[in-house]
Write a protein that binds this DNA or RNA. Structure first.
Lengths: 216, 216
DNA sequence: GTCTATAAGTGGATAGAC
DNA sequence: GTCTATCCACTTATAGAC
């Protein structure tokens, strides 16, 4: 029992260190934050951090693991989630909603912001972003558009190009939010703004690629 | 005469410091580079740097001035450069060519990379990027598309939205190049890749917004 | 303008008492 | 597991000799 208590206390501090580190790293960037800054906010001595982590980089590695878990992207794309009969616009809305939902979670916001900020400086983040986030998304959307074409919902067009046209804008929005329009205190209006822009983008794509008049 | 010689020598060192700083900052980021790193490469003592700049931040400020000068964006948009009769695709190509040309200049590449990397960490860069680069570009392209509509080259559509659809992708490409696909040693194939993607994007926009069959 | 010398501070990290 | 004490490498920056 006493061991379990100790274990929980230990685990608690370790997580507090990680959470404070996420706060600081996502605000100031990895390089601008010191072990001492973290220790000060956790309210333990800086040397105590080394009882939980090997060092500063070890904390960052632990955060990156959280990042990967938070996104939890399946290795293989499950296209079974796409019903055979479905209104394209609704489908896209449903598929982009998780992105909006993620933005409402402050932990995810911090961790996404950290990802954007440290993308260039951290090889592990870069690898995750390129190979586990961007690339599978392009593949996913390519399949979605191909399916829509096969079912006659949209005009025939290169599915990979369509996927790029659609999803590149989503990544652009990611950078717009976290690199050059970030305001944690007003994230509600920020989310409204993003939803509005995303909605306009989807509207544009379907105004252009939809069947409408041209089918007759 | 002797004064001029001294002046030139002084100016030479000052510029060498700035150039080395651009190299290092754009590779490692501002925080990861020390005055000593710069002095070592310029082959002067670190203290000598303070004869030319007030300190590290002063060097960065000087670089930001170069950045602003390099882009040299006019305060007011000159739509006179747009001829009245012009093939839309060619017009867009001509207007995007300067972007490609800029990428061929190694100095501009470094300074753009630095801009992307330090966007979040540096308020002056952020201000330049948002207010002097992004915003005027959106306005410019909005006017271009409006003019095309007025002349009947493209379908009627919200010009601001079209501008966003077109130019957001350009900014996305900027980040793709400098944040997550950068390779200075193979920048030739990189430029080919960018030209290809940009060309596909322009093709997409005009496949969608062009008159073609629908006018008949 | 460049150097030496040095100040004064911050950084990450470890040893050992409790 | 947390603390005190300490190390030492590295940082920006200045004063003053040449």
């Amino acid at each position: 029992m006493l061991n379990i208590e100790k274990e929980q206390k230990k685990k608690g501090t370790k997580e507090r260190i990680r959470d404070v580190a996420i706060d600081l790293f996502s605000q100031k960037g990895y390089n601008a934050v010191s072990i001492r800054d973290i220790a000060r906010l956790v309210k333990i001595h800086e040397s105590s951090i080394y009882s939980h982590y090997k060092g500063k980089e070890d904390i960052m590695d632990s955060i990156i693991t959280s990042l990967i878990e938070a996104f939890n992207i399946p290795a293989e794309i499950n296209l079974g989630i796409l019903p055979d009969e479905y209104d394209p616009q609704t489908l896209i809305n449903d598929a982009t909603m998780p992105m909006i939902e993620q933005l409402k979670n402050p932990f995810i916001r911090k961790i996404m912001r950290l990802m954007c900020i440290e993308l260039y400086h951290n090889d592990k983040i870069l690898d995750f972003f390129k190979n586990q986030y961007i690339e599978p998304s392009y593949t996913f959307w390519s399949h979605v558009f191909q399916k829509m074409m096969d079912q006659g919902y949209i005009r025939e067009y290169d599915a990979d190009l369509l996927s790029r046209e659609f999803f590149s804008y989503c990544i652009y929005l990611l950078f717009e939010i976290f690199l050059f329009n970030y305001n944690e205190t007003e994230y509600n209006s920020l989310i409204d703004d993003i939803m509005n822009k995303l909605s306009n983008h989807i509207k544009f794509i379907f105004d252009m690629i939809g069947l409408k008049e041209s089918k007759d």
